[in-house]
Amino acid sequence: MTALARFVRQGVGWILPLLLLVVWEVAARLGEIPKNILPAPSDVGAALWKLSVSGEIFRHIYVSSWRALTGFAIGGSIGFALGLANGLSDASRAVSDTTLQMVRNIPHLALIPLVILWFGIDEEAKLFLVALGVFFPIYINTLHGIRTVDPQLIEMGRIYGMSRIALFVKVILPGALPSIFVGLRYALGIMWLTLIVAETISASSGLGYMAMQAREFLLIEVVVLSILIYALLGKLADSAARLLERVFLKWHPAFQLQ
């Protein structure tokens, strides 16, 4: 009974998208939506089948995911390291924070022309943009998390004779974790966004490239398909982050509601 209730509760969110899908299909079949504006869901499904059989789509997904995750790993780890350094050391913060805050206010996508001049349309260009995009949310939230750890707990740790390492591992890092996760989830969104833009502007493989090529040949169902895959990948990344949150923040009252 409770399992059924849970199933119903989780399933209820899918009713509206399914209904939309049905309405869309019917409207397209009846010719209410012209084929060159929006293809029917079944056409998109057919495109997915064709590209799957040829294996082309998996190659694009693989290339795009590799770019996204590599760029994220580079930018995220630099942002995390600088966030830690500036959160823990006043000297480090005094030296670098002003500069970083200034750079932060430049929209990283505005650098695309410059990045193309620097790196051409090779992998480096896309990795650079993704890394730059995810750097700031991770940096700012790590810094914020560390600087807002309850000073009373830090004082407690000192009184109980914790070494600097113990203080960091047992008090400061766990205290900063909720904020770091906010940065992580925000960064994952930026990661896909940046990659889509970068791939549609300059690429010779990847989902963005697939969509742009399909546009040239007026294969509108492939364009829609690539948008849907982006949405799915974004959702997948967010779910992974949520899962990590549930594992690492299970002490947090917000995650104790079953």
Partner: peptide, 17 residues
């Protein structure tokens, strides 16, 4: 001033380093 991310027993262990 308990560590919210440590179980009750682990919080007591803070004093037993």
């Amino acid at each position: 001033r308990l560590l919210p991310w440590a179980r009750v027993v682990a919080n007591v262990e803070v004093g037993l380093s």
